[in-house]
Design a protein around this nucleic acid. Structure first.
Lengths: 144, 144
DNA sequence: GTCGGTGCAAACACTTTGCATACCT
DNA sequence: AGGTATGCAAAGTGTTTGCACCGAC
């Protein structure tokens, strides 16, 4: 009982009849290793350092499955997918200059009012809020 | 004061040395005509009904220019660009079922607290907040 | 052994771009 | 007239998919 063996993957996968494979393990590890919200190509290259002949298709399928199972989060930036292993509720700040994505925790709402973010060195000049849910007609259809 | 002749396009364009063309006029009109946040293909097809041999490239270039000049807003949904002629500050609700995009005005923040949106028939189950601005390192670099 | 996963390459969807011609100013 | 905008088609980018083989269970 020494080496800490994390097994959230096989657990999560097998529940739904999916298999735990070396590729999926490593894809998950590589996403978790980065706080940088990597895109599929970045993960592909990282995985390829460990499994040289892994295919890009496998990485895309793996990332998609992990996101579907809720083991990672899928973001979208500049029209391409990015992935985040931070599952806690948080928001993102996108730097308009370097295009970096920074995690901002939910206390942002307080900070926005108190100018706390400026104290943290961030300079906010716009925000985009998307609500996800059901519109009236889909909501009604669902309850038929 | 009968026929309302809107001329924001030529005004906006010429300021920066761009030309006012039939294609751009019609592209703008077609975006303004829709509250549905159309994508480039939808606009292309609408424009093509009026200028049958317009090219998709022209539509993309036109939409990009109009967005750059601030005459329309560019959104991003499911990895493809969408356009919105509603320039007032507002947010979006994306229906998880029909994928429709609905405009929500800024009083949403109040409504979120008071469950006012539910009264409007929307069922919210997630939100995505993106802040846009400068991260500490880009902010510092800019002030050098 | 079975059935889902992988590697590979082709196909896809969306968008951008190079170039000769057309047209706005 | 001069230079920007257009039409057309090709190229680019990011992502998905079909299929034969491979490997987890």
């Amino acid at each position: 009982m020494c080496a800490k063996q994390i097994k959230p993957l096989s657990h999560g996968l097998k529940q739904k009849g999916h298999r735990s494979t070396r590729q999926r393990q490593i894809i998950l590890e590589e996403v978790q290793k980065r706080a940088s919200h990597p895109n599929a190509t970045e993960i592909y290259e990282a995985v390829r350092r460990r499994i040289p002949n892994v295919s890009l298709g496998t990485v895309y399928r793996g990332l998609g499955l992990l996101a579907e199972l809720g083991l990672i989060r899928r973001l979208e930036q500049d029209g391409s997918a990015r992935f985040d292993s931070n599952l806690s509720e948080h928001y993102h700040l996108i730097c308009t200059q370097c295009k970096g994505i920074f995690d901002i925790d939910t206390s942002i709402l307080e900070k926005l009012n108190t100018h706390g973010l400026e104290a943290d060195g961030f300079e906010i000049n716009g925000l985009k809020l998307e609500l996800h849910g059901l519109c009236p007609s889909c909501g009604n259809a669902a309850s038929d």
